[in-house]
């Protein structure tokens, strides 16, 4: 089997070959989708090393569970679910109660709301894409794990409220309030750019 054959094959064919034990076909799948899986892990963890480790672990698990892939969703979507679950497990292990309880109080008391007036203008207009990504990266890093997780699961993974509630073992109401807080905080942090400029 030549390298050229794998690179021109569709994902469905590569998955079929991989399911029969063709590791080279699986390597091609990894090459195609590694950035997306890594990016999802990085969005969740905000740490390069952890994101690399978790994304690689996700690929190993993907290989082991290939027989379970039925094609209901795309292969990339299936893999993102695996890496998301690994990230959630890792976050649970790392949970820092003290810091998060302070954030939760702030969220419940509306602390962010008092500091963050509602505004209409678009604070992000005119920013270069790379600069914008850099600033979003910084802003995401300033959220707690809980708030960042709900934001990533909703905005990137496109999960519904009830799916997020199940994944995070909390109520739908908690998902809604965390999502609202995370969005407003992101908007506030990004609005700070415009003022600096």
């Amino acid at each position: 089997m030549t390298e050229k054959r794998y690179s021109s094959a569709e994902d469905e064919a590569l998955v079929r070959w991989s399911q029969k034990g063709d590791l080279e076909a699986f390597e091609e799948l990894v090459a195609r989708h590694r950035d997306k899986i890594y990016a999802r892990a990085y969005s969740m963890m905000k740490n390069e090393e952890e994101a690399i480790d978790l994304s690689q672990e996700a690929w190993v698990k993907g290989w082991q569970r290939l027989a379970q892939f039925q094609g209901d969703a795309s292969f990339a979507t299936w893999m993102t679910r695996i890496v998301i679950n690994l990230c959630l497990d890792q976050i649970r292990k790392q949970k820092r109660q003290q810091t998060e309880s302070i954030e939760e109080l702030d969220e419940e008391s509306g602390g962010v709301e008092r500091q963050m007036p509602i505004f209409a203008p678009d604070p992000l207009a005119g920013l270069e894409r790379a600069e914008l990504r850099k600033e979003i990266d910084k802003a995401l890093g300033q959220l707690t794990h809980e708030h960042r997780t709900v934001l990533v699961l909703h905005e990137f993974q496109e999960m519904e409220y009830k799916e997020i509630a199940k994944a995070m073992d909390c109520s739908i109401g908690t998902v809604m309030s965390r999502l609202f807080y995370a969005r407003r905080k992101m908007a506030s942090l990004l609005a700070g750019l415009k003022k600096r400029d």
Binding site: R34, D35, K36, Y38, A39, R40, Y42, S43, E48, I52, S55, I118, F119, A120, D122, P123, L124, R129, A130, L132, R133, I136, D137, L140, L151, E155, F156, R183, R184, M186, A187, L190
Partner: peptide, 20 residues
């Protein structure tokens, strides 16, 4: 409008992330 702008900004975030 704030919710829309935030979503729009986030939509471009992961596209630029590459495995280092």
């Amino acid at each position: 409008h704030t919710l829309k702008s935030t979503r729009q900004a986030l939509s471009t975030f992961e596209a630029g992330i590459k495995v280092p």
